[in-house]
Each structure stands twice: as C-alpha cells, then as structure tokens.
Simulated scan of single mutants.
Amino acid sequence: MIDALRDDVASGVPVVDVWQRFEVSGFIARALARAASYGDLYRILRDNGMPIGFRPTDVARWAAEGKISKAEVGEIFGLQDSEIDPFIRCMDFCRRKLAPAGSRNNMSVPEGDIMGRQRRSQRNVGTLEQIA
C-alpha cells in the first residue's frame, strides 16, 4: 500500500491537484513531483488532461496589481528571490502582448491568504473557461 501511494505521488497527479488549489507551495510540489521547474508541473496537468486553475500570467497580473505579494509569487511557483521580479515582468509582458484585443482574461485572486488558507467556498478555483 505504501508503494502504491509512493507511485501515485511520484506520478505528480495528486501533487499538482493540491498545488493548483494553493494548498501546497511550488517548492513542495516541485520536490514531490520531481519537477525541475514550474513548467514541469503544468506538463503534468496537460499530460493528464487536468484543468488549469491558474496560469503564470494570471499570477503575474495579480502581483502587478498588488493583489498578492512578490513573495507569494515565488512561493506559488517555487522561484528563488532573484527570479521573482524578472518572472513577473516577463509574464505580465506576455499577458499584455499575447492577449487578443478586447479579450477578457479576468481570473480573480481567491479570497484570503493565497497559499491554501482561503475560505472553503473558494478552494475549487476551476478552469479559465468556467470562470469567464
């Protein structure tokens, strides 16, 4: 039974599930899923047909708008302090440049402390398609 649990966690599926609900930090998710970067966490979501609860561009926008701190951005994606500002600038630039004119990517920040301490009603963020 322990081996089955170990294999399940190593697949990354349960790890990215709780990561996308802000219940575990990017540092922990990356370590458990043996992911070299946050991009690997998104690959696990894609490869397993799992919904994406938040995208890097969403999180960068939240930080640029002052809705979350830069430290929270680092915690969400498992970034080192020196990587946070360039990440926010790059993702915010991409969001603005790549978004079609008049598009509405209005995914909002869950209420409460971003890393898993939001109200129970806010835990299932859902996909962008469900929110829009």
Results as ranks from 00 to 15, higher is better:
R21Y: 07
A29W: 01
E129T: 10
A132E: 15
V13E: 08
G26D: 05
G39M: 05
A64Q: 11
V9A: 05
K97A: 15
Q80N: 08
C94L: 13
G49C: 00
D7G: 05
T127G: 03
G102W: 09
A31R: 09
F77I: 01
R104P: 06
R46E: 08
V16P: 03
Q122V: 12
E129P: 01
V24E: 08
I68T: 08
V125I: 14
E83F: 00
V73H: 02
P14D: 06
S121Q: 15
I76R: 12
F87M: 02
C94M: 13
G39N: 11
R117Y: 13
D40H: 07
D47G: 03
R104V: 12
K67V: 09
G78K: 06
I84H: 02
L32P: 00
M115L: 15
M1S: 13
P56R: 07
A99R: 13
I68W: 06
V18H: 05
E83I: 01
D92W: 14
N124M: 10
G49F: 05
I131V: 08
F54L: 06
R43C: 00
V24I: 12
A60D: 03
G78Q: 09
D58L: 01
N48W: 00
G12R: 10
V9R: 06
T57R: 07
E65C: 02
L98F: 13
E75H: 06
P100W: 14
P86A: 02
Y38Q: 01
I88V: 15
D8L: 13
R55N: 07
L128P: 05
D58A: 01
S82G: 04
P14K: 07
I28L: 13
C90L: 14
G112N: 10
I76Q: 07
N105E: 15
E83N: 01
A64R: 15
R61Q: 05
E83K: 03
A60V: 02
Q20L: 05
M1I: 09
W62L: 00
R104F: 11
A33T: 01
V59P: 05
S121D: 14
R119Q: 15
T57N: 07
K67C: 06
E75Y: 04
G39T: 03
S37D: 14
R43M: 09
K67Y: 05
Y38T: 00
F54G: 00
Q80K: 13
E72A: 04
G78D: 04
D81F: 09
D81V: 07
A71Y: 10
L98W: 13
I28H: 13
M1Y: 10
I76D: 00
L45V: 08
G26Y: 00
M107I: 15
A63S: 04
P110N: 06
V15Q: 08
D17M: 08
T127H: 12
D47C: 00
F54P: 00
N48R: 04
D17Q: 07
L79S: 01
G39D: 10
G12V: 03
A101H: 14
E65H: 07
N48Y: 00
N48C: 03
